[in-house]
Simulated assay, not measured.
Amino acid sequence: MSESTVRCWLVERTFDDRNLVTIIYATPDGSRYHQRERSSTSLQTGSPVTAATAVPEAELEPVTDEETRERYASEVDRTAERYDPDDPI
């Protein structure tokens, strides 16, 4: 990882009625996140969702409430304990 990226871990994946999947990766302390949307079809045929990914620093958004920060930090810990960063999940 270069200095301009941060390793973030998968903390949330939600499905909507438009066939889109929202994937959220967060920093280990839960203070920042990166959100991506992909079609459920691309998840089956494209690159897999991995336990962690390198996110450019400029693409991270602040988590504005304490409850979400704590939940994200807890999910990062859980994911990091169960998976290697490149494991598809």
Rank of each mutant, 00 (worst) to 15 (best):
Y83S: 11
P48Y: 15
T41G: 14
T64G: 09
I89C: 11
D86K: 15
S40G: 07
E81F: 06
T22D: 09
V55N: 00
I89P: 14
E70P: 02
T14I: 11
A51H: 07
L43A: 11
L60R: 00
T5I: 13
E67S: 14
A51Y: 05
S74P: 14
A51R: 14
T68N: 11
T64H: 13
I24T: 11
V11H: 00
V63I: 10
L10M: 05
A73L: 03
E66H: 09
T68R: 11
Q44C: 11
V11K: 00
E67H: 10
N19S: 11
P85E: 08
R71N: 06
R38V: 09
A51G: 13
R82I: 04
S42I: 05
V11P: 00
V55T: 03
E70S: 06
L20Y: 13
V6L: 06
R71E: 11
R18D: 10
F15K: 06
S31M: 04
F15W: 07
T22W: 15
L60G: 01
R7K: 09
S47H: 10
L10R: 01
V55E: 00
D29A: 00
Q44W: 06
S42C: 04
T53R: 07
V21S: 10
I89R: 01
E57D: 10
R78C: 09
H34E: 10
T68P: 14
R32A: 06
W9P: 15
